[in-house]
């Protein structure tokens, strides 16, 4: 059993590395017990500027994590969404040539199907509330999109893939929505820059709010005065990400939910 001996050696090695990491992190104070009191300077800066309109760096959102994701480190998140898009493209490329079978399976029992149909209405509502309040409460585009994809998964499991494909949720259409979401993100990302160029001012990619040295911004109150807070680009980016992630994950679930028989026949291409 040469393979088993090698696996055991690897396991011991991994154990040593991880224990070393644990001891090392504990000794440098990163794994402090009890947890430290104050925040590090960078975190403190984020916490103090994000909803402080007197600051030049404010992002008009009380949700600090969303501000970091879509404003302070916005480009990071754009690239992350790009990686997600490429993963979906890769998945489609890898399972190409699988024919969608004649979907005769009508799903589970009547009880399961009825309950699923009720929850199928409720889940997207929750998903939309998570995504559209991403700049106010915990959540955001990705979280909302993931919750939405749960509804697709439920439909696939309880009602059969045919329930979705029969309602026009084809692979190409979902991919088109996924691409539309990504394009909207790109559009919002450059919108402040375009505004700045039109006005002959300084502007940045992924700029959200007005800055003294780059005097363009996407606003933050809908209706002026005591209007509704929408936090500039954060709301639109969350909306676009919600569209992108819900379409993308639903697409992946439909691909992965294809039945066993359609996988066996597709080996020759």
């Amino acid at each position: 059993m040469k393979g088993a001996a090698r696996d055991a050696a690897l396991a011991v090695l991994a154990l040593v590395v991880i224990l070393g990491l644990l001891v090392g992190l504990a000794r440098t104070g990163t794994l402090a017990v009890p947890p430290p009191e104050g925040n590090r300077p960078l975190a403190d800066k984020f916490l103090k500027t994000t909803y402080n309109w007197t600051s030049d760096l404010w992002s008009a959102s009380p949700e600090v994590v969303t501000s970091i994701l879509w404003d302070y480190r916005g480009l990071d998140t754009v690239y992350e969404t790009g990686v997600f898009f490429l993963a979906i493209i890769g998945a489609i490329a890898l399972v190409r040539g699988i024919k969608t079978p004649s979907l005769r399976w009508r799903g589970m029992s009547v009880v399961a199907r009825t309950v699923s149909k009720i929850t199928l209405v409720a889940i997207p509502v929750v998903a939309a509330s998570i995504a559209l309040h991403g700049h106010l409460t915990p959540g955001g585009g990705f979280q909302g999109g993931s919750v939405f994809a749960v509804a697709s998964l439920l439909a696939i499991v309880a009602l059969g893939t045919g329930f979705l494909t029969g309602r026009g949720w084809s692979k190409d259409r979902l991919l088109a929505f996924r691409t539309l979401g990504l394009l909207l993100i790109a559009l919002v990302a450059v919108s402040a820059l375009i505004l700045a160029l039109l006005k002959g001012e300084m502007g940045y990619i992924m700029q959200n709010q007005w800055k003294p040295w780059a005097r363009v911004g996407l606003g933050y109150l809908f209706g002026g005065g005591n209007g509704i807070l929408y936090s500039g680009s954060l709301f639109f980016l969350n909306l676009a990400e919600f569209l992108a992630v819900s379409a993308g994950l639903s697409l992946v679930f439909i691909l992965m939910g294809l039945p066993w028989e359609s996988l066996k026949g597709g080996a020759s291409e």
Binding site: E37, G38, F46, T50, T137
Partner: peptide
């Protein structure tokens, strides 16, 4: 780290949370 209805007191570090989301 959410300032909606914030009533003072310490907040946890938001940066690892953003990193974990990514």
């Amino acid at each position: 780290p959410i300032l909606t209805g914030y009533e003072g007191g310490p907040m946890v570090d938001p940066l690892p949370q953003a990193l974990v989301l990514t």
